[in-house]
Simulated assay, not measured.
Amino acid sequence: MAVAGERAGRPAGPGPGCREEPFSPSVLGTREHWDAAYERELQTFEDIGDAGEIWFGEESMVRIIRWLEKQQIPLDSSVLDIGTGNGVLLVELAKSGYTDLTGIDYSPSAIQLSEKVREKEGMSNIKFKVEDFLAPSAELSGFEICIDKGTFDAISLNPDNAVGKRKQYVRSLCSVLKPEGFFLITSCNWTKEELLNEFREGFEILEELPTPKFCFGGRIGNSVTALVFQRKKLRPSILDKLD
Protein backbone atom coordinates (compact mmCIF):
# COMPACT_ATOMS: atom_id res chain seq x y z
CA MET A 1 0.00 0.00 0.00
CA ALA A 2 1.47 3.32 -1.00
CA VAL A 3 0.42 6.65 -2.40
CA ALA A 4 2.24 9.06 -4.65
CA GLY A 5 1.71 12.18 -6.68
CA GLU A 6 0.29 15.52 -5.53
CA ARG A 7 -0.35 16.17 -1.89
CA ALA A 8 -3.83 14.73 -1.65
CA GLY A 9 -6.31 16.75 0.36
CA ARG A 10 -4.08 19.86 0.61
CA PRO A 11 -2.82 22.54 -1.74
CA ALA A 12 0.36 21.46 -3.52
CA GLY A 13 2.07 24.82 -3.18
CA PRO A 14 4.58 25.52 -0.39
CA GLY A 15 3.19 28.94 0.52
CA PRO A 16 2.58 30.04 4.10
CA GLY A 17 -0.49 28.58 5.76
CA CYS A 18 -1.16 25.82 3.24
CA ARG A 19 -0.04 23.19 5.78
CA GLU A 20 -2.62 24.22 8.36
CA GLU A 21 -5.61 22.71 6.57
CA PRO A 22 -6.65 19.21 7.67
CA PHE A 23 -6.43 16.28 5.30
CA SER A 24 -9.61 15.52 3.39
CA PRO A 25 -10.76 11.89 3.49
CA SER A 26 -9.96 10.02 0.30
CA VAL A 27 -10.47 6.62 -1.29
CA LEU A 28 -6.66 6.45 -1.26
CA GLY A 29 -7.00 5.71 2.43
CA THR A 30 -9.27 2.68 2.02
CA ARG A 31 -8.41 -0.98 1.70
CA GLU A 32 -11.01 -1.38 -1.05
CA HIS A 33 -9.10 1.06 -3.25
CA TRP A 34 -5.79 -0.75 -2.85
CA ASP A 35 -7.30 -4.19 -3.28
CA ALA A 36 -8.79 -3.08 -6.60
CA ALA A 37 -5.59 -1.31 -7.66
CA TYR A 38 -3.37 -4.32 -7.00
CA GLU A 39 -5.82 -6.71 -8.59
CA ARG A 40 -5.39 -4.67 -11.77
CA GLU A 41 -1.62 -4.56 -11.42
CA LEU A 42 -1.52 -8.31 -10.76
CA GLN A 43 -3.48 -8.94 -13.94
CA THR A 44 -1.18 -6.60 -15.88
CA PHE A 45 1.88 -8.44 -14.57
CA GLU A 46 0.40 -11.79 -15.57
CA ASP A 47 -0.42 -10.41 -19.03
CA ILE A 48 2.77 -8.51 -19.93
CA GLY A 49 5.20 -8.91 -17.01
CA ASP A 50 5.02 -5.26 -15.89
CA ALA A 51 5.44 -4.94 -12.11
CA GLY A 52 3.63 -1.59 -12.04
CA GLU A 53 4.49 1.83 -10.66
CA ILE A 54 7.50 2.50 -8.47
CA TRP A 55 6.13 4.84 -5.81
CA PHE A 56 8.03 8.15 -5.64
CA GLY A 57 10.19 6.94 -8.56
CA GLU A 58 13.39 4.96 -8.74
CA GLU A 59 15.29 7.78 -7.05
CA SER A 60 13.39 7.08 -3.83
CA MET A 61 14.81 3.55 -3.74
CA VAL A 62 18.29 4.79 -4.59
CA ARG A 63 18.03 7.36 -1.78
CA ILE A 64 17.22 4.65 0.78
CA ILE A 65 19.91 2.24 -0.40
CA ARG A 66 22.56 4.97 -0.45
CA TRP A 67 21.73 5.94 3.13
CA LEU A 68 21.98 2.32 4.30
CA GLU A 69 25.32 1.96 2.52
CA LYS A 70 26.61 5.28 3.86
CA GLN A 71 25.79 4.21 7.41
CA GLN A 72 27.42 0.83 6.74
CA ILE A 73 24.29 -0.98 7.88
CA PRO A 74 25.19 -4.70 8.02
CA LEU A 75 23.80 -6.66 5.08
CA ASP A 76 22.18 -9.18 7.43
CA SER A 77 20.15 -6.52 9.29
CA SER A 78 16.45 -7.34 9.49
CA VAL A 79 14.43 -5.00 7.25
CA LEU A 80 10.65 -4.52 7.16
CA ASP A 81 8.97 -2.81 4.22
CA ILE A 82 5.64 -1.44 5.50
CA GLY A 83 3.03 -1.50 2.72
CA THR A 84 5.32 -3.26 0.28
CA GLY A 85 3.01 -3.08 -2.75
CA ASN A 86 4.78 -4.79 -5.65
CA GLY A 87 7.87 -5.52 -3.54
CA VAL A 88 10.28 -3.84 -5.96
CA LEU A 89 12.09 -1.95 -3.17
CA LEU A 90 12.97 -5.22 -1.44
CA VAL A 91 14.12 -6.72 -4.74
CA GLU A 92 16.52 -3.81 -5.17
CA LEU A 93 17.74 -4.20 -1.58
CA ALA A 94 18.34 -7.89 -2.24
CA LYS A 95 20.32 -7.02 -5.37
CA SER A 96 22.41 -4.71 -3.17
CA GLY A 97 23.27 -7.63 -0.90
CA TYR A 98 20.74 -7.40 1.94
CA THR A 99 19.59 -10.82 3.06
CA ASP A 100 16.96 -10.50 5.82
CA LEU A 101 14.06 -8.80 4.03
CA THR A 102 10.34 -8.87 4.85
CA GLY A 103 7.51 -7.07 3.08
CA ILE A 104 3.97 -6.73 4.41
CA ASP A 105 0.76 -5.40 2.91
CA TYR A 106 -2.89 -5.68 3.93
CA SER A 107 -3.89 -6.32 0.32
CA PRO A 108 -3.63 -10.02 -0.63
CA SER A 109 -3.37 -9.00 -4.29
CA ALA A 110 -0.33 -6.86 -3.49
CA ILE A 111 1.37 -9.81 -1.81
CA GLN A 112 0.52 -12.08 -4.75
CA LEU A 113 2.05 -9.50 -7.08
CA SER A 114 5.19 -9.07 -4.96
CA GLU A 115 5.65 -12.84 -4.83
CA LYS A 116 5.46 -13.05 -8.62
CA VAL A 117 7.94 -10.18 -8.97
CA ARG A 118 10.25 -11.94 -6.49
CA GLU A 119 10.01 -15.16 -8.51
CA LYS A 120 10.71 -13.37 -11.78
CA GLU A 121 13.79 -11.68 -10.30
CA GLY A 122 15.03 -14.89 -8.71
CA MET A 123 15.11 -13.45 -5.17
CA SER A 124 13.73 -16.39 -3.21
CA ASN A 125 15.07 -15.16 0.15
CA ILE A 126 12.61 -12.23 0.42
CA LYS A 127 9.63 -12.93 2.69
CA PHE A 128 6.18 -11.48 1.96
CA LYS A 129 3.18 -11.62 4.29
CA VAL A 130 -0.41 -10.38 4.30
CA GLU A 131 -0.42 -8.18 7.41
CA ASP A 132 -2.39 -5.16 8.57
CA PHE A 133 0.26 -2.94 10.12
CA LEU A 134 -2.33 -1.37 12.41
CA ALA A 135 -2.95 -4.82 13.91
CA PRO A 136 0.38 -6.63 13.52
CA SER A 137 0.73 -10.29 14.42
CA ALA A 138 2.94 -11.26 17.37
CA GLU A 139 5.61 -12.67 15.05
CA LEU A 140 6.09 -9.27 13.42
CA SER A 141 8.75 -7.91 15.76
CA GLY A 142 12.44 -7.38 16.31
CA PHE A 143 13.24 -5.50 13.10
CA GLU A 144 16.33 -3.33 12.95
CA ILE A 145 15.09 -1.21 10.05
CA CYS A 146 11.56 -0.25 9.00
CA ILE A 147 10.81 1.52 5.72
CA ASP A 148 7.66 3.36 4.67
CA LYS A 149 7.12 4.86 1.21
CA GLY A 150 3.61 6.32 1.23
CA THR A 151 1.80 3.99 3.62
CA PHE A 152 1.58 6.55 6.42
CA ASP A 153 0.28 8.97 3.76
CA ALA A 154 -2.53 6.59 2.83
CA ILE A 155 -3.47 5.92 6.44
CA SER A 156 -3.70 9.68 6.96
CA LEU A 157 -6.42 9.84 4.28
CA ASN A 158 -8.60 7.12 5.77
CA PRO A 159 -12.22 8.31 6.06
CA ASP A 160 -12.67 6.40 9.32
CA ASN A 161 -10.83 7.96 12.28
CA ALA A 162 -7.57 8.82 10.54
CA VAL A 163 -6.20 10.49 13.69
CA GLY A 164 -6.68 7.31 15.71
CA LYS A 165 -5.13 5.22 12.96
CA ARG A 166 -2.06 7.46 12.84
CA LYS A 167 -1.59 6.99 16.57
CA GLN A 168 -1.99 3.24 16.19
CA TYR A 169 0.61 3.32 13.41
CA VAL A 170 3.12 4.81 15.85
CA ARG A 171 2.26 2.17 18.44
CA SER A 172 2.69 -0.58 15.87
CA LEU A 173 6.01 0.88 14.79
CA CYS A 174 7.22 0.84 18.39
CA SER A 175 6.18 -2.82 18.70
CA VAL A 176 7.93 -4.08 15.55
CA LEU A 177 11.08 -1.91 15.55
CA LYS A 178 13.89 -2.66 17.98
CA PRO A 179 15.02 0.07 20.38
CA GLU A 180 17.61 2.21 18.57
CA GLY A 181 16.41 0.75 15.25
CA PHE A 182 16.01 2.99 12.20
CA PHE A 183 12.77 4.15 10.56
CA LEU A 184 12.99 5.62 7.06
CA ILE A 185 9.84 7.37 5.85
CA THR A 186 9.07 8.97 2.50
CA SER A 187 5.94 11.15 2.28
CA CYS A 188 4.25 13.42 -0.23
CA ASN A 189 1.59 14.61 2.25
CA TRP A 190 3.63 15.64 5.28
CA THR A 191 6.34 18.23 5.85
CA LYS A 192 9.40 17.57 7.98
CA GLU A 193 7.94 19.59 10.87
CA GLU A 194 4.66 17.68 10.76
CA LEU A 195 6.37 14.29 10.72
CA LEU A 196 8.52 15.35 13.67
CA ASN A 197 5.32 16.06 15.53
CA GLU A 198 3.62 12.81 14.50
CA PHE A 199 6.58 10.71 15.68
CA ARG A 200 7.62 12.86 18.64
CA GLU A 201 6.80 10.12 21.16
CA GLY A 202 9.38 7.38 20.99
CA PHE A 203 11.49 8.59 18.07
CA GLU A 204 14.23 11.11 17.39
CA ILE A 205 15.18 12.58 14.04
CA LEU A 206 18.58 11.61 12.68
CA GLU A 207 18.62 13.03 9.20
CA GLU A 208 16.57 14.60 6.43
CA LEU A 209 17.39 13.02 3.09
CA PRO A 210 17.63 15.21 -0.03
CA THR A 211 14.57 15.14 -2.28
CA PRO A 212 13.59 16.96 -5.50
CA LYS A 213 12.67 20.64 -5.12
CA PHE A 214 10.15 22.70 -7.06
CA CYS A 215 9.37 26.38 -7.43
CA PHE A 216 5.86 27.73 -6.95
CA GLY A 217 4.93 31.42 -6.76
CA GLY A 218 8.55 32.41 -6.24
CA ARG A 219 9.00 30.02 -3.32
CA ILE A 220 11.12 26.89 -3.35
CA GLY A 221 9.82 23.79 -1.65
CA ASN A 222 10.01 19.99 -1.61
CA SER A 223 7.29 17.88 -3.19
CA VAL A 224 8.49 14.86 -1.18
CA THR A 225 9.78 14.60 2.39
CA ALA A 226 12.22 11.84 3.37
CA LEU A 227 13.37 11.46 6.97
CA VAL A 228 15.35 8.98 9.04
CA PHE A 229 14.23 8.44 12.65
CA GLN A 230 15.75 6.32 15.38
CA ARG A 231 13.61 4.61 17.95
CA LYS A 232 14.38 5.60 21.51
CA LYS A 233 14.56 3.15 24.37
CA LEU A 234 10.95 3.64 25.40
CA ARG A 235 9.64 3.61 28.94
CA PRO A 236 6.16 2.12 29.52
CA SER A 237 4.84 5.58 30.43
CA ILE A 238 5.76 6.86 26.98
CA LEU A 239 3.92 4.01 25.30
CA ASP A 240 0.86 4.90 27.36
CA LYS A 241 0.87 8.40 25.85
CA LEU A 242 0.28 6.88 22.41
CA ASP A 243 -3.16 5.59 23.39
Results as ranks from 00 to 15, higher is better:
110 A>V: 01
198 E>A: 10
182 F>C: 03
80 L>S: 02
28 L>D: 03
207 E>H: 11
163 V>T: 09
185 I>V: 15
89 L>R: 01
141 S>M: 07
79 V>K: 00
41 E>M: 13
202 G>L: 09
148 D>L: 00
78 S>M: 01
185 I>Y: 04
39 E>A: 10
143 F>H: 07
203 F>G: 07
190 W>A: 07
242 L>W: 02
113 L>F: 03
49 G>C: 11
109 S>Q: 09
98 Y>S: 09
117 V>F: 02
118 R>F: 05
228 V>T: 14
64 I>M: 10
23 F>S: 02
36 A>E: 07
74 P>K: 10
213 K>S: 14
237 S>G: 02
57 G>F: 13
95 K>I: 06
42 L>A: 04
190 W>R: 01
242 L>C: 02
10 R>W: 03
1 M>R: 08
138 A>S: 15
243 D>E: 12
117 V>S: 08
34 W>D: 03
31 R>M: 05
34 W>L: 02
153 D>G: 06
56 F>L: 11
209 L>G: 09
118 R>E: 03
35 D>Q: 11
81 D>F: 03
240 D>M: 04
220 I>Q: 11
56 F>E: 10
97 G>W: 10
239 L>Y: 13
85 G>T: 02
235 R>I: 13
82 I>S: 06
89 L>M: 14
71 Q>Y: 11
96 S>A: 15
122 G>M: 11
122 G>H: 09
102 T>C: 10
99 T>M: 09
22 P>R: 06
49 G>M: 08
